[in-house]
Computed example of a mutant assay.
Amino acid sequence: MAARQLVEVYLDLLSQPCRALHILLNCNKVPHTVRAVALRKGEHRTPEFTKLNPMQKVPVMVVNGFVLTESDAIMKYLATKYDIPEHWYPRQPERRARVDEYTAWHHNNTRPHATKVFILEVLLPTQSGSQVDEVRLNRALSELADTLDKLESMFLRHQPFLCGDDITLADLLAICELMQPMGGGRDVLQQHPQLQRWRSRVQSAVGESFDRAHAVLYGVRDRRKAKL
Rank of each mutant, 00 (worst) to 15 (best):
D187C: 13
L25Y: 00
V132E: 11
T103G: 08
R98L: 12
E208Q: 02
S130K: 14
G65H: 07
L141R: 15
V206Q: 04
G219R: 01
E208W: 00
R199D: 08
T147E: 01
S200R: 08
Q194T: 13
D100G: 05
G184A: 11
H22Y: 14
L141W: 04
A140P: 13
C163F: 11
L228N: 09
K51D: 11
K41V: 14
S15I: 06
A215N: 04
K51L: 14
I119W: 00
A114P: 00
R199Q: 15
G185C: 10
R91W: 05
H192K: 15
I167Q: 12
V34I: 06
G219A: 02
E208T: 02
L78I: 15
F210I: 03
L52P: 00
G184M: 06
P31Q: 08
V9G: 08
I167F: 13
G65F: 06
K81F: 02
N138V: 01
Y218K: 03
R221P: 02
D187F: 15
W88A: 04
E43F: 02
D166Y: 15
L78Q: 07
P193A: 10
W198H: 12
H214A: 01
N138S: 11
L217A: 04
R197W: 05
E101V: 02
A2I: 08
R201K: 12
L21G: 10
G207A: 09
R111S: 04
H106T: 00
H192G: 11
A36P: 01
T33Q: 15
P125L: 00
R197Q: 09
P47S: 14
L24V: 12
D166N: 14
L173H: 12
P17A: 07
T126K: 14
Q56D: 11
N108M: 03
S204W: 08
T103N: 06
G184P: 04
L178I: 14
K51R: 15
C163E: 13
D133C: 05
L123A: 13
K150F: 07
Q56E: 15
A3P: 05
S15D: 09
L6K: 11
G164I: 03
D171R: 14
N109C: 10
H214K: 02
P112R: 03
A97V: 11
L172C: 09
Q180C: 00
S204T: 11
H158W: 02
R136F: 09
H107S: 08
V34S: 01
E48P: 09
V30G: 10
K150N: 13
I23R: 08
A170M: 05
H107T: 04
L156K: 02
R35E: 10
S200W: 04
A205N: 11
V117W: 06
E48L: 12
L169N: 07
R35F: 05
T126P: 06
K51I: 10
V63I: 14
P193T: 06
A205L: 10
K76Y: 11
Q159R: 08
A170T: 04
L78M: 09
N26Y: 01
S15W: 08
K51Y: 11
A20I: 02
V58P: 00
Y82R: 12
S15Q: 07
V206T: 05
L124P: 00
R35Y: 05
A97Y: 09
Q16K: 05
H32W: 08
M1T: 10
L151I: 04
V7Q: 03
V99C: 04
